[in-house]
Design a protein around this nucleic acid. Structure first.
Lengths: 367, 367
DNA sequence: CTTGGTTAGGCAAAGGTTTGCGTACTGGTG
DNA sequence: CACCAGTACGCAAACCTTTGCCTAACCAAG
């Protein structure tokens, strides 16, 4: 057992341990249950206002903090949620995480962050132990894994009989899951396509991450559909979400003479590579090629050529995910079978900068 | 890994709750204490190997996971640490956080992340409630607050008598604290100064964050000292750690004709601003001005002019901080009074790119 | 046959809260 | 005076583990 007694130690006569319910109770000649009820505002029991006031005063003066462990043990609820998130360089994850953290704090939950290693990916079920061990009440899964591989595991975590581990997928959507909180990627893509199409571009390139990533998948299908509806050709290239990934794709296309007049780029890291390749290839932006980033970041405004972007509501996404998970945990969403996806759409807009212009008159289509 | 066994049980009353020690014990006709001891490898008690094997088998087959709450309550140790970190855009925080997360996982701790709001800063003592409520065993403080304001509070959290809340400051150093884990900023500055000095620069500018930030303070004093030792002039400018911050400083200096031949920039965000201002001012890098970033990031290699940087061991810093905190929590560091700062120095190096060259022959000193 | 030492494991008390139920007291009514 | 209904609180179980101490069985030695 921990050396909690240890009365003769330093710190003089002051108690070395945290104040407990019983400390308050005995100081007031009351019973712990009474103190507990007062502190929890339990109205089902009649307690003299004067007594309640004394309890409150004593609790404050002793600096009482309820022991979260004991409370969680009794109540079967920890007040913590686990957030499985890949520690990628891309700052979108920070914004997502920040939004989730803030909302969780507002809702009175603490957040435990679990790193999702990208090299050796784990199944989300690997994190359900956190719920089983009562370390958390639910899982927020911002995993980088594609949903097909990630999906089945955590829903029925441990074979038959185990109840659902409350969980929500963030920024990933699976068919019929009803456990997802996503952004309106299709709307974002429409913003992009419309923006360049209005200027006269008729042939687009989209450089994005691996197609196993669900956001990527939804983006490219959306952009294909929307472009077809407007009679615009689209080339899609998947590459690792790194500078090299973007660089290699564009260099290859340039050498093959297949680079179109406008290009959308899925991530900030890839964008740097794309811009570098265009520079290397002597293609000037925006005169010869327009570029749009699907990640907004303040630094885009300070680049060589400031880059137009589509700004997605990432912090809102994080907050909405927390809300959805808490609803699931607390049963506020009225029962398990009524799964329902959440789409956060609102502030989503185009940030126009200098990297987009009308296509060059000389060139029709690809270069 | 999921126990597919449990064949007959699933048909009947599938247990809706997690397996407990008593479930294993009763299934085997043993007592919970015996099961507990086997599972914890308690060698002080003699238990027949066969019995131990049966316990292990049953525990595995039932998918037993110890309830972290009950265990923590009994042992007075949660196995969790709280990480107070500002959610800044600067990717250094991600690398720091990643290193901490990984090391904590290796040491069997989970990490709770608390956002430190930058606008309305809190005292670290505001987070000590996490320890008092037994949600965490200690605090990792990567607060953005300057140490002077942040220091006194958490050490004696709640007035006299409250024992020390185990805590470690990350990347912040206070006088005589002995609770800090920092990087060798002076070494990094020496790398920078030596690099440009060797090429012939005699007058340097350093653009960094607010001087209240401890790293900034340590960097500028180090660069001043080291430059003086080499007979080199140094101008230091503090600005917000944003693109605008860097931009404004350089534009001002340029207009005043006081921009020297070489410049070090404290953060990636500021760097974008600095480069933009130089571009605007028609100063070519590196022909007319050399630029070094004190943040390494892969994107630096793909910029207009690839930027030389000093690479700091951020992940190691995070890991070392976790180690230091755990040592404090577990008392491995042999007693409270022996506080000791930890400096992580090792992999620290200069990443040479294209943004540094000899100073222009025409210009001597500032422009 | 008793004593003494192992071996193998059981008993029960924490650890701090929550909560269903029980009870002593008080004031009013018949 | 007996009774009833509140009022104001106390009692103790439960949540799940851990751990100091105890005990029953067994075997060998005296």
């Amino acid at each position: 057992m921990a050396p909690r007694g240890d009365p003769a130690a330093s710190a003089g006569a002051a108690s070395r341990r945290a104040t407990r319910l019983v400390d308050i109770a005995s100081a007031l000649g009351l019973h712990v249950s009474t103190v507990s009820r007062v502190l929890n505002g339990d109205t089902s029991m009649s307690i003299r206002p004067e007594t309640a006031a004394r309890v409150l005063a004593e609790a404050r003066s002793q600096g009482y903090r309820p022991n979260a462990l004991a409370r969680a043990l009794k109540r079967d609820r920890t007040g913590a949620i686990a957030f499985v998130i890949p520690m990628l360089r891309n700052p979108i994850w920070i914004r997502l995480q920040g939004g989730a953290l803030q909302r969780a704090a507002e809702r009175g939950y603490v957040v435990m962050i679990m790193d999702e290693p990208t090299d050796e990916p784990r199944l989300p079920a690997d994190y359900s132990y956190l719920v089983k061990e009562s370390r958390a009440d639910g899982l927020l899964l911002a995993t980088a894994l594609r949903p097909a591989a990630a999906r089945p595991a955590p829903v029925r975590a441990d074979g038959a009989g185990w109840p659902l581990v409350p969980h929500v997928y963030v920024n990933r959507r699976g068919p019929d899951s009803g456990n997802d909180v996503v952004m309106d990627e299709a709307g974002a893509m429409a913003l992009f396509v419309d923006h360049v199409a209005t200027l006269g571009h008729r042939c687009l390139l989209v450089v994005d991450g691996p197609q196993e990533v669900d956001t990527v998948h939804r983006r490219v299908t959306a952009v294909r559909r929307h472009a077809r509806a407007r009679g615009i050709a689209v080339t899609v290239r998947h590459a690792p979400a790194t500078e090299e990934g973007g660089f290699d794709v564009v260099r290859m296309l340039l050498r093959a003479g297949q680079f179109p007049t406008a290009c959308g780029v899925g991530s900030l890291n890839q964008l740097f590579g794309v811009l570098a390749a265009l520079r290397e290839g002597g293609v000037s932006v925006p005169d010869e090629a327009s570029v749009v980033s699907f990640d907004e970041d303040q630094c885009l405004g300070f680049l060589d050529v400031p880059v137009t972007s589509v700004c997605m509501p990432l912090a809102q996404l994080g907050g909405a995910a927390v809300d959805a998970l808490i609803a699931r945990i607390e049963g506020t969403d009225a029962g398990q079978p009524a799964h329902r996806d959440v789409m956060v759409g609102e502030p989503m807009f185009l940030v126009p900068r200098a990297s987009v212009a009308a296509p060059p008159a000389t060139t029709k289509g690809t270069r």
